[in-house]
């Protein structure tokens, strides 16, 4: 067995331990007394982790490359902001409505999948992202146009406002990312996730197995949009100010670069890609000008040399049957031998 296989087995056998360590470290992070700047970077990483996890559902598992996810992000941010400022709703109810609203827009964007495949669909998603931005710019009466919206209130919990100072924002970001991650894992490890992957692998064969491919593709868009909407709804109060230019095509393109760098179709790749591409420009300020050039180079080089992404290997671990089933299979003598 090769090195990745061994590493995987090593980590997999101790996964509960490692999960616990990672979660404890993340939870204890504020105690290390990092600067506000560092904590802010951590929050941005978690926002982008959500965005890449969302993209991963459509592009990674279902194989429908969406360049419009920045649009869902914008819809989430604006919906939450406007509800908080104009309707005086709490952050929490705004979050829910924003997620739902983004989900509905994902449903609408998913509908063209009835007819379109591959690059054509990708172009339509790109057009969608731009249309969202144009609506935000031109629908002045609601969105305040290009001026954007200022003074977005921070979320509060039991009367305590969640800020950078009390690390409330950090923990909120952490909890949201954790929930999104668990949700994605649950979806992927079910017939829904299998149907997504089957569509990516061979859409016609998937149809021939009775999978209602259109329904699942639309579902993938809805889930992706909902999660992106949650990320947007969190982003707006975090920065306190949004305008249409916070949501240009560059956002969608950045999410795609992250996901491709990490490895579409894996969850580990999403966290890695988000962290790498957020931290990288920060530690190499002198390269700041070249930041987007480097994003571009990443795409080109990855496609050429490692299209599956840096962390995008097929796991060598055996399929997990679960204890109950394993016992049952062993009892009837048909426990499949390991690789």
């Amino acid at each position: 067995m090769d090195i990745t296989g061994r590493l995987e087995r090593f980590f997999s056998q101790r996964r509960i331990f490692f999960f616990a360590v990672v979660i404890a470290l993340l939870a204890a992070l504020p105690a290390f007394g990092f600067s506000r700047y560092i904590m802010r970077i951590c929050i941005v990483i978690s926002i982008y982790s959500m965005l890449t996890l969302a993209l991963n559902l459509v592009a990674g598992y279902t194989g429908q490359l969406s360049m419009g996810n920045g649009g869902f992000y914008a819809i989430g941010a604006y919906t939450a902001t406007l509800l908080m400022i104009n309707a005086g709703l709490s952050f929490w109810s705004s979050l829910v409505v924003a997620a739902a609203f983004a989900g509905i827009s994902g449903f609408l964007l998913g509908l063209p999948t009835l007819r379109l495949k591959g690059s054509y669909l990708t172009i339509v998603t790109l057009g969608f992202g731009e249309i969202v931005r144009m609506i935000l710019m031109n629908w002045d009466t609601v969105t305040n146009g290009t001026l954007g919206v200022r003074n977005i209130p921070l979320p509060s919990l039991f009367g305590v406002s969640l800020s950078f100072t009390n690390h409330g924002l950090y923990y909120l970001a952490l909890v949201l990312t954790a929930l999104v991650s668990v949700f994605c894992a649950l979806v992927i490890n079910s017939k829904v996730g299998r149907a997504f992957i089957a569509i990516r692998e061979d859409e016609i064969a998937a149809q021939m197995m009775g999978i209602k491919t259109v329904r699942y593709k639309v579902l993938a868009f809805v889930l992706s949009a909902t999660i992106s909407g949650i990320a947007g709804a969190f982003y707006a109060p975090m920065v306190g100010y949004i305008d249409p230019n916070s949501f240009t095509f560059d956002i969608s393109s950045q999410i795609i670069s992250m996901a491709i760098l990490g490895g579409l179709g894996t969850m580990r790749g999403m966290y890695f890609g988000a962290a790498a591409l957020i931290v990288f420009p920060e530690v190499s300020r002198f390269l700041m000008d070249y930041r987007f050039v480097i994003y571009g180079l990443i795409l080109v080089l990855m496609m050429r040399f490692r299209p599956q992404g840096l962390l995008g290997w097929r796991t060598r671990l055996p399929y997990r049957f679960g204890k109950v089933l394993e016992r049952q299979l062993a009892a009837e003598g048909s426990l499949p031998p390991l690789l």
Binding site: G118, S253, V300
Partner: peptide, 14 residues
């Protein structure tokens, strides 16, 4: 095919 598409997207960025 998607690899070429993503590549042209990257080139556009560059």
């Amino acid at each position: 095919p998607i690899a070429a598409l993503v590549t042209t997207l990257g080139i556009s960025n560059i």
